[in-house]
Amino acid sequence: MSRVYDIGIDLGGTNCRLALVDDQGRVSEGARFSSRGFSRGGELITRIAAECRTLMDQVAGDGDRIGAVGAGVPGLVDAQGQVVAAPNLGVLDGVAFAEELQRLLEVPVAVLNDANAIAWGEKIWGAGRDLRSFLTVTLGTGVGGGLVLAERLWVGVDGCAGEFGHVNVEPEGRSCGCGSRGCLEQYSSATGILRSVRTALEQGRPSLLATLSSEALSAAEVGRAARQDDALAREVLQDAGRRLGQALAGVANLLNLDGVVVCGGVAESLDLLMPALREELYRRAFERPARRMKILAGALGDNAGILGAARFGRDPDVVWTA
C-alpha cells in the first residue's frame, strides 16, 4: 500500500531545513542549506522548491507520494500565506510565499509563522497534546510566541498575534529591533541573557564565564556555569526568569490558559529560570489562573517546527482568525 508523506519546512534567518513527515509524526531527514546570500525572495523559494522536488522524487521511487507542504517562516504571515514582514530574512518581505511555492510544486502549500509552527507541532505531537489552550514560548535568539486556543491556532485579525517577545517588561529599558524599548526579548532570549552577562563582565564581576572567549560564550555555557553555582550566571538566569514570569502573569490574567510550553535553546535551563518565574507569576497574577497555568518544557526539540509546519500543510483550517 502506498504511503502519503508531508514535507515540513523550517526556514530561519540563517538556515533552512526540510524533512519528510509521516502520519505518525516520524521525521525523515531531508535537506539543510543556508538561507543567507539570496538577493531576492524568488531565488530562495526556487531553491526550496528544488529541495522539495528531490524529496518528492525520493518517495515516488518507493511508490509513495507527497500530500502537502507546510513552511514555518520567521516573520508575520497573512491568511493567504504572504510574508508581511520578515525582519531577519528581509528578502521575503511582501512575497506571496505559499502561492509561489505551490505554483512550482503543484501540491497544496501552506505557510505560517515559525513560532506558530512550533506551537502546532507541540500541540499535535508534543507537550501540548493534553492542553486545549496554551501559549508556546520559544526562547532562542529572540523570543517567539504561538497561541493555541480551544485546540486551534489563533493568529489574529492580520495574522500578527502571538508576538510574545515584544511584551514590554521595562518601559525605558533596552532598545529593541522592533522599534520599542524594554521588550521581553531583550532580557529572556539567548541574546538578552548574553548581553546581561557581557555587561556584568565588563563591570568587573567575577565569574567562570570570564574565562571564555566571546565566540565560546553562549546561553548553554551560562546554564552550565549556573549549575556550578556561579553567582553571576545564576543571577542573570534568575533575572531572565523574573522577566518571563512578569510577562506570563499578564497572559494568565488575560487568557486564563491551561499552560505554557517553553521551547528553544534557553529552555534547557528552564529549571534554573523557574523559581524566579513562578515567584513573579504568582505575585502578579490572580491566584486561580496562575495556579491553573502549567509551565512545561517542549518535548520535540528541533523537530517541533518541522512537525507543526508539515501538519499545518495538510490542514491549514486549524487557524482561528477574525
Rank of each mutant, 00 (worst) to 15 (best):
Ser2Pro: 15
Asp10Gly: 09
Gly12Glu: 07
Arg17Gly: 10
Arg17Cys: 07
Ala19Gln: 08
Asp23Cys: 11
Glu29Leu: 12
Glu29Ala: 15
Arg32Trp: 04
Arg32Gly: 09
Phe33Leu: 11
Ser34Glu: 13
Ser35Val: 01
Ser35Cys: 01
Arg36Gln: 14
Gly37Met: 08
Gly41Thr: 14
Gly42Pro: 01
Leu44Pro: 06
Ile48Ala: 06
Arg53Phe: 07
Leu55Ala: 02
Leu55Gln: 10
Met56Val: 10
Val59Asn: 04
Gly63His: 05
Ala68Arg: 05
Gly70Ile: 06
Gly72Pro: 01
Gly72Cys: 05
Val73Ile: 15
Val77Cys: 03
Val77Ile: 13
Asp78Thr: 04
Gln82His: 04
Val84Glu: 03
Asn88Phe: 06
Val91Gly: 06
Gly94Asp: 08
Phe97Trp: 08
Phe97Pro: 11
Ala98Glu: 07
Glu99Asn: 11
Glu100Arg: 15
Pro108Lys: 08
Val109His: 02
Val109Tyr: 00
Val109Cys: 00
Ala110Asp: 12
Leu112Glu: 13
Leu112Arg: 01
Asn113Phe: 11
Asn113Val: 12
Asp114Ser: 03
Ala115Val: 09
Ala115Met: 01
Asn116Arg: 08
Asn116Phe: 06
Ile118Arg: 11
Ala119Glu: 06
Lys123Pro: 05
Trp125Asn: 14
Trp125Cys: 14
Gly128Gln: 03
Asp130Ile: 03
Thr138His: 02
Leu139Ser: 07
Gly140Pro: 03
Thr141Lys: 05
Gly142Pro: 12
Gly144Leu: 09
Ala150Gln: 13
Glu151His: 13
Leu153Asp: 00
Phe164Pro: 08
Gly165Asp: 05
Val169Asp: 02
Val169Pro: 03
Pro171Ala: 13
Gly173Tyr: 01
Arg174Trp: 04
Arg174Ala: 13
Ser175Val: 14
Gly182Thr: 04
Leu184Cys: 02
Leu184Ile: 06
Leu184Asp: 04
Ser189Glu: 06
Ile193Met: 02
Leu194Glu: 07
Arg195Pro: 00
Ser196Val: 00
Ser196Asn: 00
Thr199Asn: 04
Leu201Ser: 08
Glu202His: 09
Gln203Leu: 12
Gln203Val: 00
Gly204Trp: 09
Ser207Ile: 03
Leu208Asp: 08
Leu209Ser: 02
Leu212Tyr: 10
Ser214Ala: 15
Glu215Val: 09
Glu221Val: 02
Glu221Lys: 15
Arg224Gln: 15
Arg224Asn: 14
Ala225Leu: 05
Arg227Gly: 09
Gln228Met: 13
Asp229His: 14
Leu232Gln: 04
Ala233Cys: 07
Val236Phe: 04
Arg242Gly: 03
Gln246Ala: 08
Leu248Met: 14
Leu248Asn: 09
Ala249His: 11
Leu254Trp: 11
Leu254Gly: 15
Asn256Ile: 09
Asn256Ser: 15
Asn256Met: 09
Asp258Val: 12
Gly265Tyr: 03
Glu268Ser: 12
Leu270Gln: 10
Leu272Met: 09
Leu272Gly: 02
Met274Arg: 15
Pro275Phe: 01
Ala276Tyr: 01
Leu277Ile: 11
Arg283Gln: 14
Phe286Cys: 05
Ala290Gly: 13
Ala297Gly: 15
Ala299Leu: 13
Ala299Val: 07
Asp302Arg: 07
Asp302Met: 00
Ile306Gln: 10
Ile306Ser: 10
Ile306Arg: 02
Leu307Ala: 03
Gly308Met: 07
Gly313Ile: 04
Gly313Phe: 04
Trp320Ala: 08
Thr321Ser: 14
Ala322Trp: 07
